Amino acid sequence: MSILNILIEIELKLKQYKVQFIFLFLFWFAGFSVFLVIEPNHTFWEYVLFSLTVRRPENAGDFTNFYSLVWPILLEVIVFGFIMGELLEKYNPIITSRILSKHKRNHTVVIGFHHLTERIIEHCIAYKESFCIIEDHEELVEDLINLGCPVVVGDPTETINLGFASVGRAKEVFIGIDDARIALICTEKIRKVNNKCPIYVRAFEDHVQDYLKQPPLNAISFSTSKWAMDGIQKWIKGKKGNVVVIGRDSLTHRIAYNVSLQPDREVFLFDDEHDGIEFSVNDRLHFVEEFARYLSDLQAHVNLEEVTQAFICWKRDSEFDESLYLTSKLRLRYPHIEIFVRIFDEELVDLVENYKAKTFSTSSNAFKKLQELVPPFSAIAPKFDD
């Protein structure tokens, strides 16, 4: 255990026993003051010894006897209780992680724990780069907390949590939250306390990106869906036939919209959470507000014999089973359809490719693109062995 961690743990324990230690000091000071009055003609150090019950004055009265009885009890309960707690108790890991963050200097701050920011954290850990992360949902960062990483669990828009993350002393900040409102609030608050560090903000809408780039924010905004779409364009360019797109996020909507701009192609977008998309809907884009888990869910709305491409873009890890099942059924019943499956774990590539489907990872591609934006001093700057 490092000296810093030991000091942090002692600080935690002192905070837990703050009230008890204050009461102990006041009791001692009161006893010291009373001995000054009732036992005159003694030296200063004798009064100290009296108040610590190391020595008793001659002809001790009732107060001395009472004080000599109570003081050892308080000393044992508070001081020795603190020492034993320091040796035996397991500290609250959330508080420990927060204090670790507070002591950071010239570090990388990551806000939000999702697929892209998870790759940033993994890179920092692998190359021993100093970092801390703010995440509102404890269950997402539970493993990092148990590993003793600097984590602030709480709302990133609250000034106190940004303070715990030491954003004022950070060398760079990465904001990977989907919510534009939260991203804007965080950027504005961070810029007020740190006007030098680069702030990288994930933002979908063009007007949000333009606002972030303007003074005084001067943030570096990017869209992971735009980056991903650059690679997907080669799969849809010059193709014929109808397309099925399944998913809920901005990348899913962007794929459906871009394909619908191609002549003589019909697009069927299955999104069970939204009732529209961020783009202008044309006559060739058909929106289906349903969860497409089985072939029958698709067949109820589209003739799969006329479909030549299918994009399965679910982003939740828990839905990979549905992705794999639908991929297998499409390959078995409609082998003419090109299938593209979004994944976030490279270990799953072989499973998907067993069904002759192509895979793509938006977070992997976005991380590489982000590495191209950062300066050499950045924690995620490409290393020579990358």
Rank of each mutant, 00 (worst) to 15 (best):
E306S: 11
R105A: 09
L285A: 04
E372C: 00
V245E: 03
L52N: 11
P57S: 07
S378C: 06
F377P: 02
V245L: 10
N218H: 07
E289Y: 05
H253E: 14
N258I: 01
L212R: 04
S33G: 01
Q233R: 12
R331D: 11
T252W: 02
I83V: 11
P93V: 11
K171M: 11
E273L: 13
H42T: 14
E39Y: 05
E142N: 05
N194A: 06
C132W: 12
N258Y: 09
I125Y: 00
C132H: 09
G61D: 14
S221K: 05
A379G: 12
Q209L: 13
G85M: 07
R56M: 08
Y67R: 12
Q299C: 13
S323A: 12
E118M: 06
V70P: 02
I312S: 02
E372R: 10
I182N: 07
F44N: 02
R331G: 04
I6G: 03
D249T: 02
L217G: 01
L295I: 13
N146R: 14
V109M: 00
N195Q: 13
F222V: 08
A366G: 03
S33D: 00
W235I: 09
A381G: 08
L74A: 10
T117I: 02
K239R: 15
I125E: 10
T359I: 12
P375M: 03
K128P: 05
N161E: 08
K226N: 06
Y294C: 06
D283A: 15
W314R: 03
P93H: 12
Q214M: 12
K171L: 03
C186F: 11
D62N: 08
F279N: 03
E138A: 12
G31N: 04
V48H: 11
Y325F: 12
S280N: 06
V374Q: 00
T359P: 02
R293N: 04
R293T: 09
R169I: 11
I95K: 15
R191P: 05
M84E: 05
F44R: 05
F27L: 13
V110S: 06
A310P: 11
T64C: 13
L351A: 12
N106P: 05
G241F: 09
A165L: 01
I10A: 15
S363W: 04
L295E: 04
L217Q: 03
K368H: 10
I133K: 06
T359L: 03
L370S: 06
T159S: 10
I134A: 00
N65H: 15
S130Y: 13
D271H: 06
G247W: 04
K102R: 09
D210M: 01
Y17S: 12
L74C: 15
E338F: 01
